[in-house]
Write a protein that binds this DNA or RNA. Structure first.
Lengths: 127, 127
DNA sequence: GGTTGACCTGGAGCGCACTCCAGCTCCTAC
DNA sequence: GTAGGAGCTGGAGTGCGCTCCAGGTCAACC
């Protein structure tokens, strides 16, 4: 299967502009072109795009994604390095989740506070 | 207790520049000034700053924090609105955590893939 | 009374990750 | 054969959240 840039955008969840931007900055390899010079994405291309969106969603900076992308080119020899990057990134995602969870507690506390205010208010009316 | 801007920065985890920036854009009320015209933060000011850092850490955009900050000025009457904002924000933080967790699974899968490569490589040597 | 260091102001600059634009080409359908 | 729509390129613009800077004030210490 091949995909036009519009189809690749739809399936990856990135915009057309973002796809071209990622190509410009070396995050994705230039895809094949059709007879009219238009980009033609393969399933492999799409898989990579989808994986990139996962990395992006988890807050990996573009320069790190690019580093990872470039290691991919020197295939097997860099597998250790790439694995290491993913391990470190996974640790940072876990830390981020923990951080969010601790902030959630503060939100719970604050919301509880507002509920108490409401409660007091209702008591004041019904008393 | 009162705090110089440097002390407030240290205790809130924000930079001095960020404190002044937050004041400029209306995220924090202008604190009291000492005889020399320097900012003098109260414990209340500090509590608000710390809460702001929680909102920021959880990704609340500044314009929303500002809205919340401004509702605070019209005290009790806006408690419902503020609670609503926190409820919505809590939902978005929970969604974000879920999103990160689902990306973690992808990372686990990829890392597992690299481990399999290593394993195969070692088998190839020892066989 | 001179130096130092913290703090002040208004405004400019920055890094990130896009996003948009003008002006062009190419294919398709009428 | 022409109108419309998708896609192309290089480059400029945007929004966010700071961060930095120049030039000045003020209090304290030697």
């Amino acid at each position: 299967m091949t995909y036009s840039i519009a189809q690749a955008a739809e399936r990856s969840g990135l915009s057309i502009d973002t796809l071209r931007y990622y190509e410009r900055i070396g995050l994705v390899d230039p895809p094949a072109r059709d007879s009219g010079g238009r980009r033609s994405y393969s399933d492999d291309d799409l898989g990579w795009l989808v994986f990139l969106t996962r990395l992006r969603t988890t807050g990996m900076p573009i320069r790190m994604m690019r580093e990872y992308a470039q290691l991919r080119h020197r295939s097997a020899a860099t597998a250790g390095r790439r694995k290491q990057m993913l391990l470190e990134h996974r640790a940072s995602v876990r830390a981020r989740i923990a951080e969010l969870q601790s902030c959630l507690e503060v939100l719970d506390y604050k919301i509880g506070h507002y509920e108490q205010i409401e409660h007091t208010f209702i008591e004041g009316i019904t008393a």
